[in-house]
């Protein structure tokens, strides 16, 4: 690296997160805290999908599926032992005594999602473009159907509820930092450059010795791990998980954040995630005072279309803005195809 600026930025980010989360947890009310936590979870989701979609160019619609896997796994692992017989009477014998504290449960959830991503990757990653989009969408729907029907473990469409409210702003802030740091490191490692090369021109990358399959699978797996963790955080924030929550609509929302921020730009994903989560809340008073529900969505989609018209490659393009990278030159072309 030519500049130390990214390191300073990371330091600043960590300091900011510590001060911010400690400060806000003392001062703000529950509503603000919930919005802040969801913003953080959306940042994790957008940044991690950016590894899959932005770096490696895999058009995946399956992100919520990994969230669901992580969310259900974490929820089952932390489910309170007293409530289990009452809430989940049909739980398989071997699952009854299994119990973990929150942090290890999150990790297990993330790893399980990553493991599933490996298996899925083996089968669908040879597909390209829109074909991959349909295949990952199919994967999402299959996961939803299985969750809907595995009554003894997931309670079907009702989902699991009564989870402990473990997630708070500090937990989310911590994971946001970890996600941004990891994805940043990946982007500027040789592996990250291979990913960008695969995205730009897979044949050329292959002829230069990049293992296409390994690179793509890695990108999918990293994305899935963080999606799984985000699912765990999500479940323990609203204290319930149902199959219906992890829907195609959620997948669209995350993709919108990635594209508006700039496919491939971590700064962009973070900014877009913040703007979109807050914008929806900002429209609530207007909708509630005038009884015109849905106006927020209409205005936001209009703004989205305007952004795409005037800045089709997103707010930050593929790169990171100068104030984060310093004089360091972008290796990737600023406008990917």
């Amino acid at each position: 690296m030519e500049s130390n600026r990214p390191r300073y930025c990371l330091g600043l980010l960590i300091m900011f997160m510590v001060v911010f989360s400690l400060g806000i947890e003392r001062t703000a009310n529950d509503y603000i805290l919930a919005i802040v936590s969801f913003t953080g979870i959306n940042i994790i989701l957008a940044v991690s999908l950016n590894v899959t979609n932005g770096f490696a160019g895999l058009f995946s619609l399956g992100h919520p599926a990994f969230m669901a896997i992580g969310g259900y796994t974490t929820a089952l692992l932390t489910f309170s032992m007293e409530k289990k017989p009452l809430f989940l009477p049909d739980l398989p014998q071997w699952l009854i005594p299994v119990h973990l504290p929150f942090f290890p449960a999150l990790l297990v959830g993330g790893c399980f999602a990553a493991l599933v991503a490996q298996i899925v990757g083996i089968s669908v990653l040879r597909l390209k473009g829109h074909y991959l989009a349909v295949a990952t969408m199919g994967f999402l729907i299959i996961v939803q159907v299985l969750l809907n029907n595995a009554n003894s473990i997931t309670r079907g469409p009702l989902g699991l509820n009564g989870l402990e409210e473990f997630t708070n702003v500090s937990w989310v802030a911590g994971w946001v930092v970890v996600t941004i740091y990891t994805c940043w490191k990946i982007k500027f490692s040789s592996l990250g450059r291979s990913m960008l090369a695969v995205k730009e021109d897979s044949m050329a990358a292959n002829s230069l010795g990049v293992d296409l399959f390994y690179t793509r699978n890695f990108a999918l797996t990293v994305g899935a791990f963080f999606a799984g963790v985000a699912g765990g955080l999500w479940g323990h924030l609203i204290t319930a998980v149902t199959p219906g929550s992890f829907s195609l609509i959620m997948s669209f929302n995350i993709i919108v954040m990635v594209v508006v921020g700039g496919t491939g730009s971590i700064t962009g994903s973070v900014t877009a995630a913040i703007i979109f989560t807050l914008a929806i809340e900002c429209f609530r008073p207007l909708e509630e005072n005038f009884g015109i529900y849905g106006v927020g969505e209409i205005v936001i989609s209009l703004v989205l279309i305007l952004i795409l018209i005037f800045k089709p490659s997103g707010m930050f393009g593929t790169g990171e803005p100068k104030f984060v990278t310093g004089k360091y030159k972008q290796l990737s072309p600023t406008n990917g195809k």
Binding site: N29, Y31, I32, A34, W234
Partner: peptide, 19 residues
């Protein structure tokens, strides 16, 4: 408050009402 047929919005909405 609009719960938007979405669990997340339902939870946020409840917190908004409570505050």
């Amino acid at each position: 408050v609009d719960a938007k047929t979405d669990q997340k919005a339902a939870a946020i909405g409840a917190k908004k009402l409570l505050s």
